[in-house]
Design a binder for these strands. Structure first.
Lengths: 218, 218
DNA sequence: ATATTTATGGAGTAATTACTCCATAAATAG
DNA sequence: CTATTTATGGAGTAATTACTCCATAAATAT
């Protein structure tokens, strides 16, 4: 048993995970707790998620929480990461899939409509709606969210540039403007989802946005 | 002088204004104070606007504030009204102007781009961004804001129906879908403005949205 | 086994929130 | 002038916020 335990420890080290800590190991699943906190933030935003509610859904007491996550703000930043690699993963997947650039953006619109109206998750997007309407002393979080949003636009631009290289798109078109447009539609869809718009409604909006694609119906 | 005073009082009554109150008249301009509060709410949202900051910009102490406005929430609801008839007035004006239905929506997009980036006002829209990410105990305000947003979509639909009656638009088109689309673009533009997008950027987004108009480039 | 290290539970706390109270000031009607 | 009504200034307050502290429990390496 001793060697087996050692072996596991070595495998874990080899896999790049943290080595077994010296003291008492934590009794809760950190990833699961983070996921639950992420959904509260997604639903209510940073300010709307109270400390007491967060530690309640995470199943932690204040000490364990601060020991594991540091602060509410640190938790929030981690939760944004968990959103991007989890429920927000549709974005990269849609852009990276097969087909033309136009196919990719059509897929993005449909995936966005589906993701924002998934009935087991909060409506809309954790990224699109956060850090827009805050007190001035939250400027750091506002900047953080703006950068995350900017990153999504950059990814769109990169896909569009790939399309220009592929010949999908003319070199004359303004890729930044197309990215701006589809980002704007996505942000707006997040607002509409919050107000109760269903998947079909968002899909129709996406279809209509795609009519603005350069050359469509030309 | 006595008769003159009486006359003024009667005229004021006749004009529908409140008769001169019995006690000490208020020393501040209620409309101006409301306008200042509205701009703080516009900038920071409901939760982000603290009571102390509100009464500071209004130039009031707590007693005078509660005497004149009742509560923070009542002030907010009044402020939304002040926004709609003030800085938000571009919306009705753009839709109601001369020309075809398509002209009206083109004007709406350009007016929106200008209004959301007016450099003497907070960026974006007081209506589009509010009540989206709140604690559950703010459900009443969230519902209120959703209704205000729904009202703007209804106004778009009414203008589109007018276009169908005029012959601007085919009776086969889905006016609700067009309204959904332009509402979505407007809400997204409010988010983009918050993140720093300038007027020209928003105007280009609006131009691109108009490419999705039924029959454009067909 | 023992010393070391870390997690846990739960009471406690400073700061901030929206809001209230009350004595006083000031305007009006008659 | 006098009584009435309302506005004002400023201290005060209950509730909530995110966060801390400390004694205790439990796991580890040696």
């Amino acid at each position: 048993m001793l060697t087996a335990t050692k072996g596991i420890t070595m495998v874990m080290k080899g896999e790049g995970q943290a080595p077994r800590a010296r003291g008492r190991p934590r009794l809760f699943d950190r990833t699961a707790a983070l996921d639950r906190a992420m959904r509260v933030f997604w639903d209510r935003g940073y300010e709307g998620a109270t400390f007491d509610e967060l530690i309640a859904v995470m199943g932690l007491n204040p000490s364990s929480f601060y020991n594991a996550f540091g602060s509410k703000e640190a938790l929030y930043r981690e939760a944004v990461g968990a959103y991007l690699t989890g429920p927000g993963g549709f974005f990269l997947k849609a852009l990276a899939g097969a087909g033309s650039t136009q196919d990719a953006f059509a897929r993005l619109m449909m995936a966005t409509a589906a993701a924002y109206t998934d009935d087991v998750s909060p409506a809309g997007c954790m990224i699109s709606l956060a850090g827009l309407h805050d007190a001035p002393d939250r400027a750091d979080l506002r900047d953080f969210m703006r950068e995350v949003r900017e990153r999504s636009r950059t990814l769109m631009i990169e896909r569009l540039n790939e399309g220009v290289r592929n010949g999908d798109l003319s070199e004359k078109i303004d890729v930044a403007q197309i990215a701006e447009f589809f980002e704007t539609v996505s942000r707006g869809m997040a607002v509409r989802a919050r107000d109760g718009a269903d998947r079909e409604t968002l899909e129709k909006i996406g279809v209509m946005a795609l009519q603005a694609w350069p050359g469509v119906r030309a």
